[in-house]
Amino acid sequence: MNLEDYKGIYVFIEQREGVIQNVALELLGQARKLADELNDKVYAMFLGHNIADQAQSLIARGADEVIVVDAPELTEYTTEPYTQAICQIIEDRKPESMLIGATTLGRDLGPRVSARVETGLTADCTKIEVGANKELLMTRPAFGGNLMATIVCKNHRPQMGTVRPGVLFAMDADENRTGEVVNYEVKFNTAKFKVKLIETVKEDTDLIDITEAKILVSGGRGIGNEEGFKAMDGLAQTLEAEVSASRAMVDAGYIGHERQVGQTGKTVRPDLYFAFGISGAIQHVAGMEESDLIIAVNKDKDAPIFQVADLGIVGDAKQIIKKLTERLEK
């Protein structure tokens, strides 16, 4: 492998039912910064069916070239057709690096592609920088968020990484940016399409994305039970906030997984994060410590959550929620 032959930062543009996902725009924003530093270009890989009319919008978000692969086989995601399309682009274009959103889709696609082209993949990066030899330094949490590790992929290309939604920043749309949209045709080996999608079922989760919320009212063990969550709901409504929770509360069934904050849930950075009755295990903290303002309430004055809180209150979370809601409603 001659590393000199590999150029460009390629971003996988995840869309669902034709809607470009925020994480794709966040990756484009990051790729733009890296490309400017490396004097390189950003390529958006836009896969799907009947999606081409949105390609131009990706240029405004940082792409220099949008590679559109429009095929009926790519209407809904399954592993093999998407892997074949991405691998054909890699073979053809020889990307220096490739970024994918660490969603349930990206974390299915990424490893399959990396194994097919035999290259390194760094999962769930929280930071991507340019190293001394122009290689990418990808930093990610390990040991349940207890340790940070910076990973390099020295002798293989592309250098692949996945990044969780909400970690990086999209750039504002700049309609003055110019770039190219090209249609790219993939030759599929349909004999390898062995997984059949029967249906996609949306569950009634209000389709809330806690990573988009400006204010989160989050609860842990100290909230106790259903009644405690009801009180949190009340406070959230008063503040026009969303409710989220630590893993313990999700495991106990009080709240759905889509509202879990932390290492195995979502990474959030709202303007305000309330941590009620959350002790602050490192797995939880890893998912919320970048919030602008953190207010924590916990009975235990030694709870680790107070180490990341801007304002800590030692006290009964349930009492404080109740009183705070009353005062705010006035």
Binding site: N146, L147, V152, K154, L311, G315, K323
Partner: peptide, 27 residues
């Protein structure tokens, strides 16, 4: 293909304010 360039514990940020007071005052 990948190797660990460096590993480090995440930095602790300076502690914020902490109050142990009655509910009304805390609110």
């Amino acid at each position: 293909p990948t190797s660990v360039h460096k590993a480090f514990a995440r930095g602790l940020k300076p502690a914020g304010e902490l109050y142990e007071v009655e509910t009304d005052e805390a609110v």
